[in-house]
Design a protein around this nucleic acid. Structure first.
Lengths: 191, 191
DNA sequence: GTAAACAGAATGAACGTTCATTCCTATTGA
DNA sequence: TCAATAGGAATGAACGTTCATTCTGTTTAC
């Protein structure tokens, strides 16, 4: 097995196990077995279990952001950017349910609290399309007056929860319903 | 220590530890030590760790539902009932942050998926103010046409996420902001 | 030939649970 | 009134298991 394949196998196995059974249903030996490598091999690619978990998250997050930025209509109205992000997030996660479930596991764990804290309090240093959206919306008075965190929650919490229900098989989030959902979210933040 | 106090100490210790450090930061020995009882004593009150976790959740959920039902304006318009539930949930959790964090841990775990599945698929048997709200709203055409699960997500996901941010100290969810938040949620589901 | 890559047995810490023992309190008998 | 007794509540050391990580001998690639 080639070196790159080996790393990918490890990541895919870890992602699958954690996505389906949580962090505690994915021991290093289970990950190794599923990946078809020895336990020790994992430690040649990742310093520790912790590093594996964080690196995988970082890679997935970067991938989503890159995708969203690829055709981001930065010059267009706030509303259009809002829809771009909303439908983009849904599209990405519907087609990558494993990524979604892994991301959820990550967010709903001590890792997530730490990640969120950094996101909220130490975000001024690098550009961020979400923050840009909030600031432009506020400046142009197209979105209501509320803290950024609340805007973010109104905009994305229903989307994330509904993707979760789709991924778990509780409903079918098709294109029509996606549009309705994002529209509803927009209606909750627009003036 | 009286028998009832002992049980309460165990529940409070378990709640606190799980709320603050997750299920895995709350071993039976830690719970016992914090409660000032022997490990074995816990097993006199709860059949297993699993039973302890489920019983505590059930008790907290029942308490919230009882509180919401106490002065529920069942005869009033859907919109008013919606606000009653929304602000009621916020009030309860703001004043019981430990309950909130415990409930969050529970929902974001395999217990939560199971709980959600039961809630969605096996709910017709007993009356539920949330379902009642959706059905009345749909029948009277005051809320948009969408699956119940999506309605539920639009209505409560931003509220839950914002309570979380308040409890974690990321913002201050006061009375004014609460009202704004619930109004925004209503705007996302109303016709 | 040799150095890097690899596999999986070994290790020790931590876990939930058990159970033989101790402790406490209510009841009995005189 | 009070010692003796009984019964169940309480205890925590011990058990078996599981885990992340390390160690060691083997294989691979050049």
């Amino acid at each position: 097995m080639a070196r790159q394949d080996k790393r990918e196998n490890i990541v895919l196995s870890a992602m699958t196990l954690i996505a389906e059974h949580g962090f505690h249903g994915a021991s290093m030996s289970m990950i190794a077995e599923k990946a078809g490598v020895g336990i020790g091999t994992i430690y040649r690619y990742f310093e520790s279990r912790d590093a594996l978990i964080r690196t995988m998250y970082k890679e997935k997050e970067d991938r989503l952001v890159t995708l969203l930025l690829a055709d981001y209509p930065i010059e267009r109205p706030v509303r259009e950017c809002f829809f771009h992000i909303g439908t983009g997030v849904i599209d990405y996660f519907i087609h990558n349910p494993l990524d979604f479930r892994y991301t959820e596991q990550f967010h709903n764990s001590p890792y997530g609290v730490e990640h969120r804290r950094n996101r909220i309090f130490a975000s001024a240093d690098k550009p961020d399309i979400f923050i840009d959206l909030y600031e432009r919306g506020t400046a142009q008075q197209v979105i209501r007056d509320m803290p950024m965190v609340v805007f973010f929650n109104l905009a994305f919490a229903p989307i994330i929860w509904t993707i979760r229900d789709h991924v778990l098989g509780f409903l079918n989030l098709d294109a029509l319903l996606s549009r309705k959902l994002v529209e509803s979210c927009w209606d909750s933040v627009k003036i």
